[in-house]
Structures are given as structure tokens and as C-alpha cells.
């Protein structure tokens, strides 16, 4: 799998790591059920502390994109590919809204009004 880490933006590193994996899932680099490389491997590859990688992975687990299983490591959750792509767009929307002066609450209201 190919991971793209965006080092230009100034988000925290663990979010960048999560973003790289989210993007990899969205683009089909690893499909549902696939096993992710171990955190140590990812940390060496990305040049990022292992704890930072783990923090990013936990965030993705909380989003429902990854599953942590004892003995099997970290796997991509079922249906994660579609969800990951959508989540990435939602993040862009939130960032775009913040830039234009719209808070999350207002965005939510817009979404509710949207048909």
C-alpha cells in the first residue's frame, strides 16, 4: 500500500497520520478485512513516533474505520472504504466552513435543511 503523508499542513502529526491512512482506505489501497502494517512498521516508514501512530490508529478505530483484534493486529473494518471517503469530505467541509466563518452547528443546520 502507498501512504501519502501531507507534511505541508500544520495539523497535529497524529491527525496527519490518521489522514494518510484514511486516504489510503478511501482510495482502495487497502480494502475491508485487510491487515494494516504493525504500528512499529508504520512509525519507521513515516518517520513518526510509534505513540503518535497509535494515537492516529485509535482515532480511526473510534471513527469505525479500523478494528483492533488481539492476535490479528489492526484490520480495515467492513464498509470502511465508502465511509472513509465520506469522512474525508466531511472534514474538508468543516475546514472550509471554518475558513468562511461558519461553525459546526451552522453546518449541521445547513445539512439538516439540505434535501
Amino acid at each position: 500500500m502507498l501512504l501519502r503523508l501531507n507534511i505541508a499542513d500544520n495539523r497535529p502529526l497524529h491527525e496527519q497520520v490518521a489522514g494518510a491512512i484514511r486516504r489510503a482506505i478511501a482510495e482502495g489501497e487497502c480494502g475491508p478485512g485487510d491487515r494494516l502494517p504493525p504500528a512499529r512498521e508504520l512509525s519507521l516508514a513515516l518517520g513518526v513516533n510509534a505513540n503518535t501512530v497509535l494515537r492516529g490508529l485509535r482515532a480511526l478505530r473510534d471513527e469505525g474505520l479500523l478494528e483492533f483484534r488481539r492476535g490479528r493486529g489492526v484490520t480495515v473494518a467492513g464498509g470502511a472504504d465508502g465511509r472513509s471517503a465520506l469522512l474525508e469530505r466531511v472534514r474538508e467541509l468543516v475546514a472550509d466552513g471554518a475558513r468562511r466563518g461558519y461553525g459546526k452547528a451552522e453546518l449541521i443546520r445547513m445539512i439538516e435543511e439540505a434535501q
Binding site: 500500500m1 502507498l2 501512504l3 501519502r4 503523508l5 501531507n6 507534511i7 505541508a8 499542513d9 502494517p37 512498521e41 508504520l42 516508514a45 513515516l46 518517520g47
Partner: peptide, 11 residues
């Protein structure tokens, strides 16, 4: 692209 770090992993 500028500002991107790429890593390829395979097993």
C-alpha cells in the same frame, strides 16, 4: 507533489 511524503509498504 511538494509537501508530501510517500511511503510504500508491501508484505
Amino acid at each position: 507533489p511538494e509537501g508530501e511524503r510517500r511511503v510504500w509498504l508491501s508484505r
